[in-house]
Design a protein around this nucleic acid. Sequence first.
DNA 1: CGTGTAAGGAATTCTGACACG
DNA 2: CGTGTAAGGAATTCTGACACG
Lengths: 76, 76
Amino acid sequence: MHEKVMSIGTVCDLTGLTERQIRYYEEKQLIFPVRSKGGAHKYSFDDVEKVKEIHSKLRDGFHTFELRKSGKVCCE
Amino acid sequence: MHEKVMSIGTVCDLTGLTERQIRYYEEKQLIFPVRSKGGAHKYSFDDVEKVKEIHSKLRDGFHTFELRKSGKVCCE
DNA sequence: CGTGTAAGGAATTCTGACACG
DNA sequence: CGTGTAAGGAATTCTGACACG
């Protein structure tokens, strides 16, 4: 489930989050989608799970830089 | 692996076929993608496998209507 | 810090059709 | 029959930025 095949819109559907949130997590290096020819970001099912967990941790009071350092959401 | 999450471009990448071929197999009711809000077709990994097999059978001399009837590529 | 939004451009996908054979 | 292509429109995604706080 680490094949990067879905676009951001699908990730939004699966997680219930917005494009903005997903792109922000990516900007903070918590997830690493691949780029297709046209520049579109492609995500895997693993990424979907990570995004959900990141959002959950943020609600618990954590910050993105803490999540990155702790490796709590870096499962590769 | 039956979750419909990828767009046709990704299916092309994974199968090596063209959009035209994939849409044709769909027109002949050999694969059944779901539609997202915007009208885009979404495919699953199962669909990718089916597409590969359909193409393989066609090269072997079969016709789309035969594949549909025989159920050789209808694994749902 | 994490997220919302308006902005313009670029790439993707869709449909129906003509073509070959 | 199965696939290629040119055609125009609609929906998607991208990036950088201003905003709040």
